[in-house]
Design a protein around this nucleic acid. Structure first.
Lengths: 146, 146
DNA sequence: GTTGTTTATATCGTTCACGATGCAAATGTA
DNA sequence: TACATTTGCATCGTGAACGATATAAACAAC
């Protein structure tokens, strides 16, 4: 008999991993239409809030390493969504800026948040319960960031 | 001014994605000690519950595609953790079985669930609130599976 | 100023994820 | 039995993630 602690049903991580994957998949057709991946969409969210950021600030905001973000940004540069240029004050930095195409994508993706948001609404996940879910996930993230 | 719906702080998916990544990272040192990755650990959880399963059953249980699971299992086979052999009733199936090494890993990993479990305990995430979190995540998963 | 350290980014290798496609075994139908 | 379809798995290509390492610029100490 398998111990309770090893049952898949008792694993928080498996739930987070699965929910994250499935929700990312829900974004896929909406973003793919515009040649974007989900992590690239996250970079856009960061740059729409504040344009012209160094790689490090983007990575820190997304809690990713630069070795993940750098290739991702180079692909976005190749797609003409962002530009990357050396910082003037600090020549080590690479400043990432939205192109017109990158900026304009916001209008084209205007329906994405609500479409995905509506896709998860169900019995126990409603506008009333989501804040509580956010709180717990934020707590987990804060805790694991140390 | 950026719209509310595009703010990173209002995204469920980003929270799930980040929490999943960070929690998986918490497993990394514990599993890496035994030459395992997190997805490989998930396969072990499935096989410890029930040995000798075809690739498809493992993939379905983890909500993954076989094209993800097949290479993963081949790596585990190369590590001597599982064997893969053609099914006798249905020659299309590949039956995956734990080796002694794979079976014995359970004892060696006995502390992993509690160690990781304790790492997430914090103010809003306690033995009392976790069932509610499980319920919401299960709801999201169920909803997105269609 | 020379040297040592830190910081910002990039490169490399490995392992997922996953869409698209291929192939052989099983199944269904005429 | 013949042929089409479905099923189970594998292969291929691309894009993340991430540990390890490299490189150049900035900074610090002497």
């Amino acid at each position: 008999m398998i111990e309770e602690k090893f049952k898949l049903e008792n694993q928080l991580c498996f739930r987070l991993y699965t929910a994250s994957r499935l929700l990312t998949q829900a974004y896929h057709p909406l973003l793919g239409e515009h040649g974007l991946t989900y992590p690239q969409y996250l970079v856009l969210l960061v740059l729409w809030e504040k344009d012209a950021q160094p790689v490090n600030d983007i990575a820190k905001r997304l809690l990713l390493e630069t070795n993940t973000v750098t290739p991702l940004l180079k692909r976005m540069e190749a797609e003409g969504i962002v530009t990357r240029s050396k910082g003037k004050e600090d020549a080590r930095q690479m400043i990432v800026r939205l192109t017109k195409k990158g900026h304009d994508l916001q209008k084209k993706l205007t329906d994405v948040p609500d479409t995905v948001g509506n896709a998860v609404i169900c019995e126990n996940v409603t506008p009333e319960t989501v804040p509580g879910l956010f709180g717990m996930l934020d707590d987990i993230i804060k805790q694991l960031k140390q």
